[in-house]
Simulated scan of single mutants.
Amino acid sequence: MGEVASRFRNLQLAETRAEVLRRLELAAEPAPRDIGGPSWRLMLGELSALAEPIRRQFRHTEIARTATPRTVMLLPGFATHPIRMRYLAHQLERAGHTVKRWGLGFNLGPSVENLALLEGRLESLAARAGEPVYLVGWSLGGLFARELAKRRPELVAKVVTMGSPFSYNPRANNAWRAYHLVAGHRVEEPPVQADLAAKPPVETVALWSPRDGIVHPRAARGLPGERDREVALRCTHLGFAWDPEAVAAILRELEPS
């Protein structure tokens, strides 16, 4: 039995090593010649997020109570946990909205299984609310939100994406190498069928920023026909989850048109 267990462990180790090497090869692929992400100057600007917990101590934001409370599901960005959207959730709750997490923990990329779990989560939230749910997705979370709305439009009131790369080119960002390494597949070859640029059959709003240091503005802004509206902000990519301008924009999207 000891020899069998040892062989099994060695086989597992070899498979793990092979998978790590495969992912490293994906991450080392050459960048597209004519397509790239934001400049390194903008990328460095993302470091300003490190000071946000300090700045927040001196910021007091007035939040008006809404007359039309919504049920909102927040979907986190790539490799982030819902806790990174806790500040945004708190501000929406101050306005009177009911805010729910997506229920999957860290966002490590799409799979058949996690999309099915999200559908079930959406169904449950809509049933409890007695009305369609508002989906607010940050970066990769916005791609999940758009795909959910395509699959179950009757359960979704509106989709709001924040710096989400649904248009242009899937490698027009500074995170695709990290994505290949973590998710284990190319950004243009997800393990689920998806036409990222196709607009969901519900109202869809794209928040984007020319100061985004991760995702190219053309990818997050989209083209007419790929979203209903686009709104330009002046925050960093990481700032979509806490910048006062971003919070105000999302609160406006939760109000009646």
Rank of each mutant, 00 (worst) to 15 (best):
M1L: 05
G2T: 07
G2S: 09
E3C: 01
V4M: 06
S6Y: 10
T16R: 15
V20H: 01
R22D: 11
E25Q: 15
E25N: 14
L26T: 09
E29H: 09
E29K: 14
P30Y: 01
P32Q: 02
D34L: 13
S39C: 05
L44S: 10
E46R: 10
A49S: 09
E52P: 00
F58S: 11
F58A: 13
T61M: 10
I63R: 09
R65W: 11
T66E: 01
M73G: 00
M73T: 00
L75C: 00
F78R: 04
A79S: 14
H81L: 07
H90C: 10
Q91T: 00
E93F: 01
E93A: 13
E93P: 02
E93G: 09
R94G: 05
A95P: 13
G96E: 06
V99C: 01
G105F: 03
F106K: 06
L108H: 02
L108M: 06
P110M: 12
L115A: 00
A116H: 09
L122W: 13
L122E: 10
S124Y: 13
A129E: 09
E131T: 10
V133D: 04
V136R: 06
G137L: 01
W138I: 01
G142A: 08
F144V: 11
E147N: 15
L148M: 12
R151T: 06
L155K: 11
K158F: 08
V159H: 08
T161P: 07
M162A: 11
G163N: 02
S164K: 04
S164M: 03
S167M: 01
S167N: 03
S167P: 09
S167G: 02
Y168D: 09
N169C: 12
A175I: 15
W176P: 12
A178E: 09
Y179A: 14
H180S: 13
V182H: 07
V187R: 14
E188L: 04
E188I: 01
E188Q: 13
K199T: 00
P200W: 05
P200V: 03
E203V: 13
T204W: 03
V205S: 08
W208F: 14
W208H: 10
P210W: 07
V215Q: 06
V215A: 11
P217Q: 04
P217W: 06
P217L: 02
R218L: 12
R218N: 09
R221H: 04
G222T: 02
E226A: 08
V231D: 03
L233V: 02
C235K: 00
A241N: 07
P244W: 00
S257Q: 15
